[in-house]
Simulated assay, not measured.
Amino acid sequence: MYVFGDEKIISGDSAKVWAVWSEVERFPEWDPREMENRLHGPFAPGTSGYSKQRGNPGGPYTITAVEPGRMWTAESPLPGGKLTIDHGLEPIRDGKIRVWKRYEVRGPLILLFRLYYGRKVRRALAGTFTALEQEAAQR
């Protein structure tokens, strides 16, 4: 297993941040990493979707958990394994919110994620968190 991710403290209203982060089909409108994201049903556990990030291969995913206003998880199949991505937010004080993403890779592609995708994603997450903050401020 290989785990990586990042977090950032942003400013805003946690309900608005959650609204932006749980509207996955609109990710390409504000997240500089996203090219395409679509769900084949409601934003709820068991719903499948498709996601494509810039510079990375796209693929299917399934929402496996949702804690409204707090966290959601998506899982994607990998050859011989899977990728699990947790998206979280936690109001901390005075309009500040800790947002985070945690990636867990299982299977034979761990080395590829450790040497290439993990670094690339970690570098891009700061931009994603900043864009999330800006989009929530506009709503």
Rank of each mutant, 00 (worst) to 15 (best):
G81L: 09
G55S: 00
G41V: 00
E75Q: 11
R102D: 14
D94K: 14
F27A: 10
V17F: 06
M71W: 10
G95K: 14
K120N: 08
G107N: 08
G55K: 02
E7T: 11
P68G: 03
G5N: 07
S76T: 05
R123S: 10
F43C: 03
L109N: 08
W100V: 10
S48E: 06
G41L: 01
V66D: 06
R93Y: 14
R122M: 07
I10C: 09
S48R: 11
K52M: 01
E67R: 12
T62N: 00
E7K: 15
I63R: 01
E135Y: 05
D31G: 01
E29M: 07
L111W: 15
G88H: 15
R54G: 03
A44T: 04
E133L: 01
D31A: 01
L125F: 07
M35G: 08
M1G: 15
A44R: 02
M71I: 04
G127R: 07
R70Q: 09
R114F: 03
G81Y: 09
G88Y: 15
G80D: 05
V20C: 04
G58K: 02
P68C: 06
F129E: 01
M1E: 12
W30F: 07
P108V: 15
S76F: 11
F43V: 03
A131I: 00
E135P: 02
R139N: 01
E75P: 04
G127W: 10
M1Q: 13
S48D: 04
K8Q: 12
G95M: 14
F43E: 02
A15L: 11
I10N: 09
R139W: 04
S76A: 13
P60D: 12
P45S: 00
G107P: 05
K101M: 15
G118S: 09
Y50A: 05
W72P: 10
A137I: 02
V24I: 11
A74R: 14
Y116N: 10
K101G: 14
R122E: 08
P28Y: 03
I9G: 03
K16L: 10
A65C: 06
L78S: 05
K82A: 14
E67H: 08
A65F: 03
I85C: 10
G69H: 06
T128D: 03
E23A: 11
L89W: 12
P79G: 10
R26K: 11
T130N: 00
I85S: 08
V3E: 13
S14T: 01
V17H: 05
R38E: 04
M35I: 14
A137H: 01
A19N: 08
H40W: 04
R102V: 13
Y61M: 03
K8F: 13
S51V: 01
P32K: 02
L89I: 13
P68T: 14
K16C: 04
T62C: 00
K8D: 05
S76L: 11
T64Y: 06
G12S: 04
A44E: 04
Q53C: 02
G12H: 07
L89D: 12
L132F: 02
R70K: 12
R106F: 11
A65H: 05
K82M: 13
V99D: 06
F27K: 02
R26D: 09
H87D: 12
A137L: 01
I97M: 13
D31P: 02
P79S: 12
